[in-house]
């Protein structure tokens, strides 16, 4: 579904991503691991079209999409959940979800059905539909941005550190939902610093270090071969 090759991302003189290559197959759940500052978010943002890479190739279903605008990437089926979460705090939960379906005007029935599916999956969002999203807790906001991204009915979900700053019990629930989404046929590229938990649910994994892909393989192999503590600390 997704093939990234030789990706270069620069912020001025900073080379955040240095020739990274990775691939995600149809229906796979692939984890992208690495310490803080390794270049994971930059890679994801480049795929989502939120920033323009300096070089490389990004193919979605074999079609080159490097430099495509973010609004076009959603229409092509790639939805992004950024690490900053980025709920619209002044908009209600319901309005946030409605925006998630922005690309699907004309499909009112399908949107209503998906909304129902998401509210069933995240019941707390149903209770808070008319509340400003800014009043939700961190965990609830994370559920909202995942549900919002799902409202575009994506084929590929780009998830950036969904566990960031959340209590362990909430993280458990978020990861269970990721597994559920994947089981329903969604392809997922999951960025995590929480390596052990990500490896437990992923099919394959890539490890990023200083902008480069340092290791890749089946999740179990990566888990066995890598000192996860080291990964965390950026060794």
């Amino acid at each position: 579904m997704l093939e990234v090759a030789g990706l270069e991302v620069r912020y001025g003189a900073v080379r955040a991503v240095r020739g990274a290559s990775l691939a995600v197959g149809d229906g796979e759940l692939v984890a992208l691991l690495g310490a803080n500052g390794a270049g994971k978010s930059s890679t994801l943002r480049a795929i989502a079209g939120a920033l323009r890479p300096a070089a490389g190739s990004i193919r979605l279903d074999g079609q080159e999409v490097l430099g495509t605008s973010p609004e076009r990437m959603v229409r092509l089926g790639a939805a992004m959940v950024p690490e900053t979460r980025d709920v619209f705090p002044d908009l209600t939960v319901g309005e946030n979800l409605r925006l998630g379906a922005f690309t699907r005007r004309g499909d009112a029935q399908g949107v209503a059905a998906d909304r129902e599916r998401m509210l069933a999956m995240f019941p707390v969002l149903r209770e808070r539909q008319d509340q400003p999203a800014g009043t939700l807790s961190g965990g609830e906001q994370q559920m909202l941005v995942i549900a919002r991204a799902m409202m575009s009915r994506p084929r590929l979900l780009l998830l950036d550190e969904p566990s960031l700053g959340l209590a362990p019990t909430i993280v458990q629930r978020i990861f269970a939902m990721i597994v559920e989404l994947r089981r329903a046929g969604l392809t997922i590229l999951l960025v995590e610093q929480n390596a052990a938990q990500a490896l437990a649910i992923a099919d394959r994994a890539y490890v990023m270090r200083q902008g480069e892909i340092a290791a890749s393989g089946p999740a179990a192999e990566i888990a066995a071969a890598t000192d996860l503590q080291q990964l965390y600390l950026g060794g």
Binding site: A48, S69, P70, E71, V74, R75, M80, P82, L99, F102
Partner: peptide, 9 residues
């Protein structure tokens, strides 16, 4: 940027 990532042109 977030609005654009949801498909708002």
């Amino acid at each position: 940027t977030m609005a654009r990532m949801l498909g708002v042109p």
